[in-house]
Design a protein around this nucleic acid. Structure first.
Lengths: 182, 182
DNA sequence: AGGAACGTTTAATAGATACTAAACGATACT
DNA sequence: AGTATCGTTTAGTATCTATTAAACGTTCCT
């Protein structure tokens, strides 16, 4: 370990890249975000590419998605036609945004799958296997709905604040961490 | 749509497969679980393979991992040396198990990354960029710890039960859904 | 207008991962 | 013991996705 900030930034980018990957996001997006997160002030697309030894094209692609997800924001400096970027500082905001995104894609899809499967089951059939399958699908359906409500509740935690005092789930989370706004 | 149970099972397996994939699990594992979930009683490995048009090897691989995660359980029928499997019925149990698994892998890894990055920063350096990077890393660190506590709390919800009445986050989740045991 | 400095797109490549088929080892039955 | 029936392992293949390099279009500057 040789205590250069480039060194630290490199291994950090790598680590966050892996973390992103396990979250179903692009590894490169993680690297880009990590670089920006440690760097104060606006950074140009080409500086990012250079700093990560990554092609401009890839940075362009990933940073656009990152911007859409609210991980970074584009900044215009007048008199400069380059695009500059900054990392979002509020990590709760990021989590909420990404979670909502995934929830929309994955949860709705799952509900749809269950619904279609239920419909394509032979109707009014008294076969044991059909009855059993239907029971399980119903169970899955209500499970998904509960998860949905639960996720929604957790994701909108910032609206709770005053109420959370009585909630054992959250009691030990520092208040200032909870008081975030979208 | 032609109302055969095979039809329903097929599209269901496909759908759950995709869902698993977006959760970072094997698509095939999702298919296997889906098949078992809709089928009552023990099913042999070869029947699963046949039912999904999948190789024995692949089923063997995926079902072992599925068993480790508690998605399915192996069943011995005496007088039969084949392996039979059944799907776990309690979906909350599954979620908890998988989440814990991921938390161990991913969360601990992230914390370690942050820690190492902090250590490899030039020490006692008053450069603006170093000070800034350190501030951000500290912020990330405390964020991760909060997330950790939060996830742990949610994952151990079954221990709450009586207490959840006062918790706005969970009030509208049916009680019977919460009262699950590991 | 000509040219330089951008970001984006695209077509091709590289890389990783999942899956298969077949060989293998083990176990139970005759 | 020999054989048939399992599940597992492995080595190869296929598939899919991320990434690059280069062409492209645009904007700004002189």
């Amino acid at each position: 370990m040789d205590h250069s900030i480039e060194q630290a930034s490199d291994s950090f980018s790598e680590g966050i890249g892996q973390l992103f990957q396990s979250w179903g996001l692009q590894k490169s997006m993680g690297s880009v975000f990590a670089l920006l997160y440690l760097k104060e002030g606006p950074t140009s697309l080409e500086d990012i590419a250079a700093g990560l030894s990554m092609s401009k094209g890839n940075v362009s692609l990933n940073i656009r998605e990152a911007e859409r997800l609210g991980l970074v924001s584009k900044i215009w400096l007048k008199g400069d036609r380059r695009d500059y970027y900054e990392a979002e500082d509020n990590l709760w905001k990021i989590v909420r945004r990404v979670s909502r995104e995934r929830q929309k894609r994955e949860f709705d899809f799952a509900v749809e799958t269950v619904k279609e499967s239920l419909e394509s089951l032979p109707p009014k059939n008294k076969d044991n296997e059909v009855v059993f399958a239907r029971k399980r699908l119903k169970n899955l359906d209500s499970f998904l709905k509960s998860v949905n409500r639960m996720v929604n509740s957790v994701l909108s935690l910032e609206t709770l604040r005053g109420a959370t005092v009585n909630c054992p789930v959250l009691k030990h989370i520092p208040r200032k961490k909870r008081a975030v706004t979208e």
